[in-house]
Design a binder for these strands. Structure first.
Lengths: 329, 329
DNA sequence: CATGATATGTGTAACGTTTCACATTGAGAG
DNA sequence: CTCTCAATGTGAAACGTTACACATATCATG
């Protein structure tokens, strides 16, 4: 008995089913074919354990059913949620996700694009920071959180509106001495607008609003110094804090609890992102939540849209406020 | 002038450079070729913006330079770090990562394997929970944190040893009334051994060790109840707490700070995993750190090993203790 | 100077699909 | 009973590579 080492091919299936090669192809591409033929082919395929070779198919059709997802990393909770969302949205549509991480390195970003283009994906979803990426215009590209040019659609949350929402919420809850805290990222991006939105509300009300912006190279320590130097007689100089993201908010919360001021009695705290992880059920930090799933789904939608003639160049998704125990409701 | 719509192919490069097709192929496969020929080809390729079509290559060689990574999700910090590590380890070796998430669903896990097999990857790195996955034995498979059978290598951290290390560390730091806290995962896995290791140390010393294990369906609230019911006159009934992972530890830390006991003066706290995110610089929680990068690299190593004749069936990587402010050093 | 031996370029046959022109069949019309 | 048309199966060409057998050139050797 002749030993077959190679995986079964369409030719094998055709022989086994006693039909022509083209017929087998039709069956696997849902092209009308006689009922009995279809059954014969399907049975033969099952017997042989046949699976279509997507590389041969990709070569022929120039469609690969895979898209590349480019992110700085996947350890940042927000990126992680995004990756999760994109991955499953793509999975549902029968696409697979090729993940590349860049560590914010422009060179890595470009290398990624290169590699990905070479590897013939059907499209790219990118969250990158290089201003001028060299990407094949034939390849569908959707940018998250960063606007490039009218040609490439950008989807992001309403960061400015989110900042405003945080401010309005704090105001409504009686905040009179607001503070905005910001850390990181190496490059200007959409998230800068959070602070702008926050400050704009207080400016309009002719109220002061203190902002502290630090690079993440110095870690969180400077925040601790700042906070403790603004405590007098156990009372903090601020009664409402808006943090640029939840990771920072959690840190600040921990610091505050150590330093004395009670949350939310003495000072209220609002983060940004809506990272659910910190509390599987119920929040432990009030926050402006980004619609991560919608971000992911919208990106996938835009990328896979058949009619690519008039895509929106910017899609801005609404955020919402979620109470989580660090504000007085 | 004739408009070329299709991406340039080797044939185009060959014509442009005035050499034979095979020569171009040799250049791109690092097969010895005359210096002048090589230059001519490289220049032609650059002029045309040629990139090899990896689908044609994959079809011919049966190697695709891509491996599938199967994880429950990528939002759990530990999985995220793992994904990050695997993704970059693979990237360094010129492989790309196809990410699939399963949400702990056995059906999704099997579907993943199917899809991935059909899509002809060079191997699979999986962190799955289905006991009997149906996977093509021809396809290299490495399992993380879960032992299947001698045939498929499993790499994991030394969870038992980590538990012991936590216990020994607490003992050395003067702990007399230990507590072990555990939450989650839906399925038995390697991480169960952490508690076993921890308890074994105290058992050997004939000391009591309280354990509290909860499902994650109930969230963290039960822990708060437990803790507050064990506080008497501001003093906690325990002076050393070991949490099954860092996410839980951070929660417990927050609760403790709210409830009164000071950390680490009144009670010391050790987590597990080594999630660095909570503090970019310096820890804010002492922990047993898993060598995530080594886990990732080892998995990739094992998967891509040329000689697949005698692979280890189990690789257990050492963990280490990292002080982080919640223990008295 | 003939002769291998070595090195390096050439052309072609696969790889496993899809696609398309063509062959075959059967039904219905005249 | 022939003819046409639609429906549906068939076989071969192509997709862009790699690998291999072969052709050619270069060079040392007796």
């Amino acid at each position: 008995m002749k030993q077959k080492e190679h995986a079964p091919t369409m030719k094998d299936v055709a022989r086994e089913a006693g039909v022509a090669l083209g017929t087998v192809s039709k069956v696997f591409n849902s092209i009308p074919v006689g009922e009995d033929y279809r059954r014969r082919v399907e049975e033969a395929a099952r017997r042989l354990g046949y699976q279509v070779n997507s590389y041969a198919r990709g070569l022929k059709t120039n469609r690969t059913c895979s898209v590349a997802l480019i992110l700085p990393n996947v350890t940042d909770p927000f990126f992680a949620m995004l990756a999760q969302g994109v991955c499953s949205a793509l999975g549902q549509r029968g696409y697979r996700t090729i993940l590349s991480t860049t560590a914010y390195d422009p060179e890595a970003e470009q290398r990624c694009i290169q590699m990905v283009q070479q590897n013939k994906v059907d499209g790219i979803i990118g969250l990158t920071y290089t201003p001028d990426l060299d990407v094949d215009p034939r390849l569908p590209y959707v940018s998250i959180d960063r606007y490039f040019s009218p040609g490439v659609p950008c989807v992001s949350s309403d960061n400015f509106g989110g900042g405003q929402l945080a401010a309005e919420t704090l105001l409504k809850l009686g905040c009179a001495r607001p503070l905005f805290l910001r850390i990181g990222s190496k490059v200007p991006g959409e998230s800068d607008k959070r602070g702008n939105g926050f400050e704009s509300v207080f400016r309009q009300k002719r109220m002061d609003c203190v902002s502290l912006r630090l690079n993440d190279e110095e870690g969180y320590a400077p925040f601790r110094n700042f906070l403790s130097s603004h405590i007098e007689g156990g009372r903090l100089a601020f009664d409402g804090i808006f943090c640029v993201n939840d990771a920072l908010a959690i840190q600040i919360l921990t610091m505050l609890l150590e330093l004395g001021p009670r949350v939310p009695e003495d000072v209220q705290l609002i983060g940004f992102d809506g990272i659910r992880r910190f509390a599987r059920e119920g929040f432990y930090c009030s926050t402006i939540v980004q619609p991560v799933s919608r971000l992911a789904e919208t990106s996938v939608d835009l990328l896979l849209r058949e009619d690519r003639s008039n895509l929106p160049s910017l899609v801005c998704l609404p955020v919402s406020y979620a109470a989580g125990g660090t504000t007085r409701e």
